[in-house]
Design a protein around this nucleic acid. Structure first.
Length: 635
DNA sequence: CAGTGAGCGAGCTTCCGCTTGACTT
């Protein structure tokens, strides 16, 4: 018997199905060794030697792998072909310590790819493993050295990290921009002609006086067609899904959280309907693309099929490309996928459409722009109208949009026009939008911060720690979020920089290529970092956390004022005179529903170490609690 | 899945990334 070890149990199942009985396939289910949770686990004095220990929950997996390896003639370690996968391969090699160990990698789960991989056996790539060690040790040092400073200087239980702290910083700085934003008035001016409407261009109008002046001019002006431009505009299909774009689409189209989209995708993956859902790659297997092309020409016709297969390249530099893009494993299964619950069906169809569309021809629009000259005694104003007509739907056949169609008349340059009416509209510039889950993931990916497996967890972490809260889908920083970010940006500008991760990735690549030694990188990072840690520990003042005033007097001492504070369990109301006055009240985050148990209290959102849950405002009299939102009772 | 803040000073908190499982609907 020959043993193949992969990371995912589903992948193992798929492989064993087509490999035949001389192969057994087992999985590590992720990392099997990691730094210990309760101590630093890095010997800084001794060249940053990491103490990788078996992961507590993986004891059984490790035992099973050992047992199977003992029976095997040869063991192929086929963990993912990326940095983390190589580290896992190294850890597997350590626990098995067997002579018949071979490292193989493949990018596609097909019999041919695996056979080919087996035909070119290799060894664990130590440089790549060292790159993982660097990443892991650096994250551990940043996280486990800065967090205790926060306990000391801000409040117990807080956390800092290369990823989460920068994510919070993005939200905090956006909020500051919104606060500082001064809305500006501006005016738009329009003229209506027989078959179309044109808007004033090239002039900035900031007040009504100016707008009225222009209107007066336009009333008396002579109009003629100044220019007509027609051109064809192509609109290319969307690239196939990655984790990032799939969670963004889930949010935009279904209104789902990243967690929900990922949970549904996990089930689709386990049911064998889609390829792996934690990926940053846009690669597609040749076989899958050919099947899509056949389908397109058969189902929609030749004119929808590009001459050659379309290839998509990942823009992100930090992409690891260990997997394919997210696509259906078998495109024939559309609508036939039996037993799918509604969520699964919705996401599956979206993935299916996105994949087929990505191999279809662009949609083509005919775009017309008409410039109109308005001449009057004092001068000239220019107006413009533009219209678009779809002349070929292409991939849009699958993704129709309800676009307002503006059809412009056929006009010739120099032709004079008669205006029917002119008018103006007052507008205001808008502050930048707050982040939602989709836009946060998008910018994190752009900055190279976080990985496909962590986007959804990051969003949970920053909320569980009470750094930010989500209201109507938008992220708002809390007073704690503001205070911690200010403290970190001031004291750890290097680690909090938006480019810190990108720079780290560049160095990790050099380690992987054997160009620099990982211990040297650590030393270079550690020296100034250690100095900063010491200085902050000694010099930084304890941070005062702002409170939100409620504008009501404290009913106990009558002297203080009620304020909202953010504690370990979320918001609560207390007296501004604390600690002199110990008055507290519950902060009720009502969701507008009566408690299903006692029927008296309100259902409120509560916070625990594990995340938000739903409880009753009458607690402790009523003990109602639930992770899921209770269902509205029909009376 | 449940009582917060300060400081007292027991014993504790904390990172990122890879993977599911155990819950519930």
């Amino acid at each position: 018997m020959q043993l193949i070890i992969v990371e995912s149990p589903t992948k193992a199942k798929t492989l064993s199905r087509f490999l035949g009985s001389e192969f057994e396939v087992d999985s590590t289910r992720g990392h099997i060794k990691d730094l210990p949770k309760s101590i630093l686990g890095v010997d800084i004095e001794n060249d940053f030697k990491p103490d990788y220990v078996p992961v507590e929950k993986k004891k059984e997996v490790i035992a099973s792998l050992k047992k199977k390896a003992k029976l095997a003639k040869i063991v192929y370690i086929a963990t993912d072909p990326d940095r983390e996968g190589e580290a896992i391969a190294g850890h597997v090699a350590e626990i098995l310590s067997k002579s018949k160990l071979v490292r193989i990698t493949f990018h596609e789960i097909t019999k041919e790819a695996v056979k080919e991989a087996i035909s070119r056996p290799g060894k664990v790539n130590e440089n790549l493993v060292n790159a993982q060690i660097s990443r892991r040790v650096l994250d551990r040092l940043v996280g486990y050295k800065i967090s205790p400073l926060l306990w000391k200087k801000v409040r117990r239980g807080l956390s800092a990290g290369r990823v989460q702290s920068v994510a919070v910083r993005l939200i905090v700085e956006r909020e500051n921009e919104i606060k500082a934003f001064k809305t500006e008035e501006y005016w738009e001016v329009f003229a209506k002609f027989k078959d179309f409407t044109a808007g004033l261009i090239n002039e900035k109008i900031t007040n009504k006086v100016k707008a009225d002046e222009i209107l007066a001019n336009l009333e008396k002006a002579d109009y003629k067609v100044f220019d007509v431009k027609k051109r064809e505009v192509k609109s290319n299909a969307y690239a196939p899904f990655t984790t990032s774009t799939m969670t963004q689409a889930g949010a935009r189209i279904f209104g789902w959280s990243a967690k929900r989209t990922m949970n549904v995708a996990q089930r689709l993956y386990e049911e064998g309907l889609i390829t792996y859902h934690r990926t940053d790659s846009m690669n597609l297997s040749i076989d899958a693309v050919n099947k899509a092309r056949n389908f397109i020409s058969k189902e929609y016709g030749q004119k929808y099929l590009p001459e050659k297969a379309l290839v998509y390249k990942t823009k992100s530099k930090s992409a690891q490309e260990a997997h394919e893009a997210i696509r259906p494993t078998n495109i024939e299964q559309i609508n036939e996928a039996v037993g799918l619950i509604p969520d699964e069906k919705k996401l599956y169809e979206l993935i299916w459409k996105r994949f087929i569309a990505c191999q279809m021809n662009p949609a083509i629009y005919s775009e017309t722009t008409i410039d109109v000259e308005a001449k009057h005694k004092e001068g000239v104003h220019m107006l413009r109208a533009s219209g678009q007509i779809m002349i070929f739907d292409g991939w849009r056949k699958l993704f129709m949009v309800d676009k307002e169609i503006i059809i412009l008349p056929n006009l010739t340059i120099g032709e004079s026009l008669v205006k029917e009416k002119v008018w103006s509209e007052q507008k205001f510039t808008l502050a930048p939008a707050r982040f939602n889950e989709a836009s946060l993931i998008k910018i994190l990916e752009k900055l190279g911060i976080g990985r496909p497996s962590t986007y959804a967890p990051i969003i949970s972490t920053i909320q569980i720690r009470s750094y930010v809260e989500k209201k109507e889908g938008k992220f708002f920083p809390t007073t704690i979020g503001f205070a911690v970010t200010e403290f970190l940006v001031k004291n750890f500008p290097i680690e909090m920089d938006f480019g810190f991760t990108a720079e780290m990735e560049e160095n990790l690549d050099k380690i992987a290529d054997g160009k620099i030694k990982w211990v040297e990188l650590m030393k270079k990072f550690w020296k100034p970092f250690e100095k900063t840690l010491k200085s902050v520990e000694k010099n930084a003042e304890r941070v005062k956390i702002e409170t939100e005033k409620l504008g009501k007097a404290c009913p106990d001492c009558k002297d203080g004022e009620l304020v909202i504070r953010v504690g370990r369990f979320g918001k609560f109301i207390s007296c501004s005179k604390f600690p002199d006055c110990k008055h507290t009240e519950k902060f009720l985050d009502k969701i507008g529903m009566k408690c299903p148990d006692c029927k008296e209290g309100d259902v409120i959102i509560k916070k625990s170490k594990k995340g938000n849950f739903f409880g009753c405002s009458k607690y402790p009299d009523c003990k109602f609690a639930s992770w899921k939102k209770p269902i509205e009772e029909k009376s």
